[in-house]
Amino acid sequence: MQAAEVGGLSGGSMADPLLEAKDLAKHYGSVEALRGASFTAFEGEVVSLIGDNGAGKSTLVKCLSGVQRPDSGTLVFGGREVVLDSPVAARALGIETVFQDLAVAPDLDPAANLYLGRELRKPGVLGMLGVLDKKEMRRRAIASFEDLGVTLQSIDVPIGSLSGGQRQSVAVARSVVWASRLVFMDEPTAALGVVQRERVLDVIRRVRDQGMAVVLISHNMPEVLAVSDRVEVLRLGRRVAKFRAADTTVEELVGAMTGALSQEDA
């Protein structure tokens, strides 16, 4: 088998990764979710993070998007060492995340969820008083959803009354609308039908082509191979292998996930 060549696949100088996490550890009580996990993402690439259930993928994403603090380890983003002590810190760096549990407010409508925490305010005095520009948010949300191929019968219903797949599509839309450098997507296609899945994969490619990094977590190996430039494998809280998607196979990925294969330098 082939060790992965580190480096993005599009563009020129690819020496420096956009994001480099080293030796992250995180435990919940006695459960060690991450045991020295490392992870790398380059600009302009789709990198898939795969691993068995409970391997620590979601925990890694939470640590890298400021939702949880790792117990130890270092994080370098854009060439500088950073500490992500809150989701706001991650967002300030241009990092957006689709969480596995979606993290949407079910009682609010899709536009409100899209703009949650970044509400547009009316111009002038009203805006200073905190009055929302609901019309403008709604208008732009409709445009974003249309642009990203999210189909909703009605935009004025609470998101909780949408189907699981529609909710997921809204969460994906929210992440790519706001991201400027890196998007984490934790199983963004898990609940999607064939058409919507293709749309999300298209969106992922589009975001990559704009020069951002996309980190995709998925259990669907053909999907991983279809959309990724690279694949990193997590097992028992540690990175055990890195592959270039073009040079690997489903068998190899599965072998790395289950521990049948391992790379020493991963």
Binding site: P87, T97, A105, L108, L116, E119, G130, V131, L132
Partner: peptide, 24 residues
């Protein structure tokens, strides 16, 4: 009904963790 404060009040009641993750 019309302000950010109100919107965040709904959001927190709807899903506190989601509100936290969007930086409220």
């Amino acid at each position: 009904g019309t302000t950010r404060f109100g919107r965040h009040t709904y959001a927190i009641g709807s899903n506190e963790e989601a509100a936290r993750r969007v930086g409220i």
